[in-house]
Every structure is written in structure tokens, then in C-alpha cells.
Design a protein around this nucleic acid. Structure first.
Length: 103
DNA sequence: CACGTGACCGATT
DNA sequence: AAATCGGCCACGT
């Protein structure tokens, strides 16, 4: 990963490398991207993904292991994770001990 | 340049 | 366990 890439580009690359069936956090991505305190911005980047992007954005949750999205969006992310074998409660809670991606 | 805005985080009530 | 608080920083206006 090139250090001169823009923040969004670094985020895209990192998210793209999260393996199926695993999840990571906004804060962890921020650290890997070289801006350890820019977790909110990671969320901002994912929100603005182009329509039809293949990036596995659904593998990103908050530091408490819960889905940060709400309403229908929460359920979409939940389904995407369930379909690749990640257990998610109805309210969007995930066991990070079990599914966290260790870089 | 000066704000306002968050798919956040960690520490502290 | 849950709510609150202060800090954070990329981006838009």
C-alpha cells in the first residue's frame, strides 16, 4: 500500500483485503490506514461508496462488535454477514472474539 | 479561513 | 450494562 494514496484509497484497499467470514472495526482500519484517530472518517468513506461497488463494506463494525447502521441498512448488513457464516443477533451484535480479523 | 457534520472511540460516570 | 462526554479529523459549504 502506497503512503501517498489518499485516505479513501487506503481505506478501500484495506477493506478489500478483509477475508470472507471475518469482520474488523472502523478504528482498526483507521490505524492500518495510518490515521489512528480517524475512525469516523472511515465510516464516512464507506457511506460514500459508489453504487454497485463490490467492496465488502459489510465486514466493518464498530469497536463494540455491533453494526453501526440503523433500520433497513442494519438488516442488509446483517444478512450479508449471515450469508457468509458470521453469526449476528437480531439487533446486530457480533462476537468479535470469534470473528475478528487479525491483520 | 471558520464552521458544522458524522457507518467512531475510549474513558468515565 | 448503558448513557454521557470530550476528542478526533476528513470533507463539504
Amino acid at each position: 500500500m502506497e503512503h501517498n494514496d489518499s485516505f479513501p484509497q487506503r481505506v478501500w484497499q484495506i477493506v478489500a483485503s478483509i477475508p470472507e467470514g471475518k469482520v474488523t472495526t472502523y478504528g482498526e482500519i483507521a490505524r492500518l490506514a495510518g490515521s489512528p484517530r480517524a475512525a469516523r472518517q472511515v465510516g464516512g468513506v464507506l457511506k460514500r461508496l459508489p453504487e454497485g461497488s463490490t467492496l465488502p463494506w459489510h465486514r466493518v463494525v464498530n469497536s463494540q462488535g455491533t453494526i453501526s447502521l440503523t433500520g433497513p441498512d442494519l438488516q442488509r448488513q446483517r444478512q450479508a454477514l449471515l450469508s457468509e457464516g458470521v453469526q449476528v443477533s437480531g439487533t446486530g451484535k457480533i462476537n468479535l472474539r470469534k470473528y475478528r480479523w487479525d491483520y
